[in-house]
Design a protein around this nucleic acid. Structure first.
Lengths: 99, 99
DNA sequence: TGAACAGTTGAATAACTGTTCAACTATTCA
DNA sequence: TGAATAGTTGAACAGTTATTCAACTGTTCA
């Protein structure tokens, strides 16, 4: 017997998915799937300027999805835990089977 | 050796998660988890008027997440497949383990 | 020290989106 | 037929948000 989820839990869930619900952010997360990258390289890969990427990285960091470390001039970002990749994969699976 | 995902695939993924990234929509999906419901009952449950719920149900239907059947005056909505519930559960799991 | 490179920040803009309202369609039943 | 109930629709409004720009901080290295 499972209890119903509260409104607050659903709102929190929506906040979580909202982070994945943007093309730029999801591409950044995808880029970080196999290796850590600095802001410049991420910007190159997703085809946006450093500023835009930095803004989105901030969102991702506040959502606890990426972590960062400085090495000299560069700041390297990586996925903060395996859940992020897991959620991405479930999403892709859904799209593949969808039609 | 896995190939990189295309930009289009990431954008499609973002569109998928965007649907889950709204409090009202995610509560509607949560309400439909165990049983089909008509628009009025959904509206009662999530505390919104029929119009707002109907608009969101349209989004959910276009995203292939709910299906509907008419029975007399009522139109009953239900989850279109098990993926939807699965994605919700993964999200909740992430929140629970998150902190 | 200062030039060059990496990244961040805040304000401004433009685009998007969720909710409301009023008017509409569809079905039932007396 | 017509009143009542269920649901949909489109326009309008308000709130949110992603991107851009310019100015800033921090680090390296000559």
């Amino acid at each position: 017997m499972e209890r119903d989820c509260t409104i607050e839990e659903y709102l929190e869930l929506a906040e979580l998915f909202k982070v994945f619900g943007d093309g730029t952010r999801v591409r950044i997360l995808g880029a970080l799937k196999d290796k850590e990258m600095c802001v410049c390289d991420i910007a190159d890969k997703v085809g946006m300027n450093k500023s835009a990427v930095s803004h989105q990285l901030k969102s991702l960091k506040m959502a606890n999805m990426v972590k960062s470390r400085r090495d000299g001039q560069n700041i390297y970002y990586s996925l903060s835990d395996t859940h992020v990749e897991e959620i991405l994969n479930i999403g892709f699976e859904h799209l593949r089977e969808g039609r």
